[in-house]
């Protein structure tokens, strides 16, 4: 199968993720969309790895997964504490860090 199709899929997934980040307000959903974008990138990296015939892309994909895992830990902790203090998971309620 033509590896370029995997790139199309990656682009589609990334766009869906980006759109989700922009239009959704629920922090959990935004978070999931970010994960979607990261995984889209991973897919693209692996596809490139296949296309160029070396392992660089796969190695970077592993790095990305590790970082994403760390991010999930920190991010979920923030969301949980936010929910505890404000009883809401809407990001619009957390717009106080301005001025």
């Amino acid at each position: 199968m033509n590896p370029v199709n995997y790139l199309y899929l990656a682009a589609l997934l990334f766009t869906i993720g980006a759109t989700g980040v922009l239009i959704r307000r629920n922090a959990i959903v935004i978070f999931m969309c970010i994960e979607l974008m990261l995984n889209a990138c991973n897919l693209a990296l692996v596809a490139f790895s296949r296309m160029h015939g070396n392992l660089d892309g796969q190695i970077i994909a592993f790095f990305t997964m590790v970082v994403a895992a760390a991010e999930v830990v920190v991010g979920l902790a923030i969301i949980v504490s936010l929910f505890r203090s404000r009883h809401s998971a809407s990001v619009d309620d957390a717009s106080l860090m301005k001025l």
Partner: peptide
């Protein structure tokens, strides 16, 4: 310029994209 920093994560995301 300060007004651009409205505190909404979305708008920051837009500027990033």
């Amino acid at each position: 310029m300060r007004r651009l920093q409205n505190g909404f994560a979305r708008s920051y995301a837009v500027s990033m994209f």
